[in-house]
Design a protein around this nucleic acid. Structure first.
Length: 561
RNA sequence: UGGCCUAUGGUGUAAUUGGCAACACUACUGAUUUUGGUUCAGUCAUUCUAGGUUCGAGUCCUAGUAGGCCAACCA
């Protein structure tokens, strides 16, 4: 929230400079321009946070613009999903725009270019055009159709629009420079014929404008001041500017494109093709599988919009290659969830404990605070009885002094309850511990104020009363990939790095208050991690996702020894 | 082998534009704690290399080195 103190990123410096050089604050306008051909992922989140963050910072409008110029790939299903994700992240767009709304204007401008001799219809095949393109080190050669008469170009272009030709028969090209060192300037294609219905314009058009001919012009129509995109579009800037040069009215604001490096998250892939492969191969259950880096996956997993925004904010924006460690994302989820998640108790790997000196059949309802970080969260009652579950990892017959948990002859506090002492344990034929017999100190009840209740014992365990426990399916997730850069190996396919143990489904035993939990609700299972109710939950089958574990310094200690 | 972009701790970003390399994460110490959580305190850098300009260089100049992008009727 200390927004003032944060130093500016290079994009903000550009905006500040523009403000000094004559832009009015009211001139500023930004846009987030997804193509509706797939689901948004964590990489898009950076771009969304950048553009909408700028909007918030300068109190200027941000458009949500769908770059829908390729009907072969785009569907309205994706439009809806994208709108949902952007809203969920907490942003409000000014106008909902579609590049397809500008098809008419773009067509008229194309005709202008033809009339000025700056565009021509090329009737070669795509192979021929590609062959004439040259290479980065050799110039291209000119198309035999490059010098068609304006009249013929006009006639052909209109016939293209009217559907008189099949796909691939003609294209409209800008007449720029076949010898440019920038391959994109070698007479780029502006229009191609596509006899495909469009998700919004249906069959109104059978010629569709290309990205380069659409994007800057859309920015201009919307009077976007700063058109921000990722670094791979940097070579497009020259063309972006060339097209604007042909039609900009000097009295109107001229948009500028600037580029930033895309953010890469470690241990994940983000390309649509690879995500699709994960879905189709059955490695994950769908685009919103909680292990997916999609916004919908993160949402289902229990990440909060705040945590994603803070994450995007702290990594910032720059121009160099990067791989951000997932642990930073996890830090931000924990940071936010620590403040807001109600604490509850759940045992995931149960070991039965019997309190031998506790009356059989008796139950007590103990007071438990909901969130030590937030007094207003209040408290609730949890049942205590003679038979309890604790975690198997919390008991050892014998252990050294570093082990703060329950061991034979040792004492431990049951969170919100009593101090207990382990007296004996029973084992099955294989030697596995099946039950621990304990005694409790009746005067040590939490919050009772007695001298015994204030006694310090080193360990505090979470627990659940066996007769009151609610069973639930709990899904424990781990990283989807074992390698920090699964798609960064030239000799190995990213699928080779899929973590076979990224999902572990178990049955957990929860305190009864969780019976009322609704889909999406998030909790801290004390000492275990943050969990939320999955959308697979039904009335009689609760399903929880583990969003992220708590930091676990004990596990690290254990690993070392 | 053409053009363009980039290079600061393990990671991601800063550095008032030439003035004590800062912040966050991770890791490691320690304190606090009825969550081995949280919180608090502390530790971890030859600014890619080599020269140069300067009282002074992460920042400017020269030459290297390394990585990335560019030849879809995709965006």
């Amino acid at each position: 929230m200390s927004e003032e103190e944060r130093s500016l990123n290079f994009i903000e410096h550009i905006v500040e400079d523009d403000l000094k050089d004559g832009y009015g604050k009211e001139d500023l306008r930004f846009r987030f321009p997804p193509e509706p051909n797939g689901y948004l992922h964590i990489g898009h989140a950076s771009s969304i946070c950048l553009n909408f963050g700028l909007g918030l910072r300068y109190d200027s409008p941000v458009n949500l613009r769908f770059d829908d110029t390729n009907p072969a790939k785009e569907e309205s299903e994706y439009v809806e999903a994208i709108k949902k994700d952007v809203s969920w992240l907490g942003y409000e767009w000014d106008k909902e725009c579609y590049a397809s709304d500008y098809f008419g204007q773009l067509y008229d401008w194309a005709i202008e270019l033809i009339k000025q001799g700056k565009a021509y219809v090329d009737s070669q095949t795509s192979e021929e055009i590609a062959n004439q393109k040259g290479t980065p080190t050799e110039p291209g050669s000119e198309s035999p159709f490059r010098n068609r008469s304006i009249e013929e170009n006009l006639e052909l272009f209109q016939a293209m629009k009217e559907g008189k030709f099949g796909e691939g028969e003609h294209v409209l090209r800008a007449k720029v420079d076949m010898a440019s060192s920038n391959m994109l300037m070698r007479d780029p294609i502006m229009y191609r014929i596509l006899h495909k219905p469009h998700h919004r314009t249906n069959t109104d058009w059978c010629i569709y404008p290309m990205y380069d001919w659409t994007h800057g012009e859309s920015d201009y129509i919307e009077q976007v001041s700063h058109s921000l995109c990722t670094l791979e579009f940097l070579p497009h800037r020259e063309l972006y500017d060339w097209f604007l040069d042909q039609l900009v009215d000097s009295k109107k604001l001229r948009p500028k494109q600037r580029e930033f490096a895309r953010r890469n998250l470690s241990h994940t892939v983000v390309s649509k093709r690879k995500l699709l492969q994960l879905v189709e191969s059955g490695v994950v259950s769908g685009w919103d599988d909680p292990r997916m880096p999609t916004i919908s996956g993160l949402r289902r997993r229990g990440f909060t919009p705040e945590s994603i925004r803070n994450f995007a904010d702290t990594i910032g924006i720059a121009k160099r290659e990067n791989v951000v460690d997932v642990s930073l994302l996890e830090f931000h989820v924990r940071e936010h969830l620590n403040k807001i998640a109600p604490r509850v108790m759940a045992v995931l790997n149960p070991l039965k404990v019997v309190i031998t000196n506790y009356e059989e059949g008796k139950e007590e309802w103990l007071e438990a605070e909901n969130n030590p970080e937030d007094e207003s969260a209040g408290s609730r009652k949890i049942p205590f009885s003679r038979d309890l579950f604790i975690e198997q990892e919390d008991f050892r017959e014998q252990a050294n002094r570093k082990f703060f948990r329950l061991k034979l002859g040792g004492e431990v506090r049951l969170k919100n309850g009593y101090i207990i002492k382990a007296e004996s344990c029973t084992k099955d034929v294989e030697g596995n511990i099946t039950e621990v017999q304990c005694t409790y100190d009746p005067k040590s009840k939490s919050g009772s104020g007695t001298e015994e209740s204030l006694r310090k014992v080193k360990g505090t365990l979470h627990w659940v009363s066996v007769p009151h426990a609610v069973e639930a399916e709990v899904r424990l997730y781990d990283r989807l990939f074992n390698d920090p850069t699964p798609d960064g190996h030239k000799d190995k396919d990213f699928m080779e790095f899929v973590n076979p143990d990224s999902l572990n489904r178990i049955t957990g035993y929860l305190e009864p208050s969780l019976k009322e939990a609704k889909v999406g609700d998030g909790f801290q299972f004390q000492r275990l991690g943050y969990f939320n109710v999955d959308s697979d939950s039904t009335e009689n089958h609760l399903v929880f996702n583990r969003t992220v574990t708590l930091r676990d310094t004990w596990a690290k200690l254990e690993q070392k020894s």
